[in-house]
Simulated scan of single mutants.
Amino acid sequence: MRIAITGSNGKLGRAVVERLTRDGHEVVGFDRSGPAGSGFTLVDLLDYGQTLDAMLGVTARHDGVDALVHLAAIPVNGLVPDATTFHNNLTVSFNVMFAALRAGVRTIVAASSITAMGFPFDEPPPYLPVDEGFTAANNTYGLAKVLEEAMFAQLVRWQESTSITALRFTNVVGEDEYDSFALAGDPSYRRDLLGSYLDVRDGAELVALALTHARPGLETYVAAAPDSGLEIPSRELAATWCPGVELRRPLGEHESLVSSEKARRELGFEARHLWRHEYRGSRSE
Rank of each mutant, 00 (worst) to 15 (best):
L211R: 02
I232G: 08
G217T: 08
G217H: 06
H213N: 15
E219A: 15
L230D: 09
L193T: 03
L198S: 04
A210H: 00
I232A: 08
R215L: 14
S196K: 00
G217S: 11
E219Q: 15
A225S: 10
A214R: 01
V200E: 00
L193P: 05
V200Y: 00
I232V: 13
A208R: 01
H213I: 13
A225F: 05
A223I: 06
L198D: 02
L198H: 08
S234Q: 09
R235K: 13
V222I: 11
T220S: 11
L198F: 09
E205V: 06
G217A: 12
P216W: 04
L206C: 08
R201P: 03
G229P: 10
L230E: 12
A223R: 03
L211G: 02
G195C: 04
E205A: 13
L194S: 01
R201L: 08
E219F: 08
S234H: 08
T212M: 14
T212H: 15
E231L: 15
Y197D: 02
L194K: 00
I232W: 07
R235L: 13
Y221E: 09
D202N: 09
L211M: 09
L218V: 10
E219G: 13
R235G: 12
D192N: 13
P226L: 09
E219H: 12
P226N: 11
R215C: 13
Y197E: 03
S228L: 14
P226M: 10
D192H: 09
G203I: 01
G203V: 02
E236L: 12
A208V: 01
S196W: 01
L193V: 06
A210Y: 02
E231G: 15
A210M: 00
V200Q: 01
G229L: 08
L194M: 06
E236W: 11
Y221H: 07
S234D: 11
E219D: 15
V207Y: 04
E231A: 15
T212C: 14
G229E: 10
V222C: 09
D202M: 07
D202H: 05
G217N: 08
E205Y: 05
A225C: 11
D202F: 04
E205W: 03
G229T: 10
S196R: 00
A208F: 01
A208I: 00
R215I: 12
G217M: 06
L211C: 06
T212S: 15
Y197M: 04
T220E: 07
D192A: 14
L194H: 02
L218M: 11
V222G: 07
R215M: 13
L206W: 03
G195I: 03
R215N: 13
V200K: 00
Y221L: 10
P226G: 12
S234P: 08
V200F: 00
R215W: 11
L198A: 04
L230R: 10
A223Q: 04
E205N: 12
L211Y: 04
H213C: 13
A225E: 06
P233K: 12
P216M: 11
G195Y: 01
A210V: 01
A223V: 07
V222N: 09
P226Q: 12
H213Q: 15
H213R: 14
L230T: 12
S196P: 00
P233F: 05
H213K: 15
D202W: 01
E205K: 08
G203M: 03
A224C: 12
E205P: 08
A224H: 05
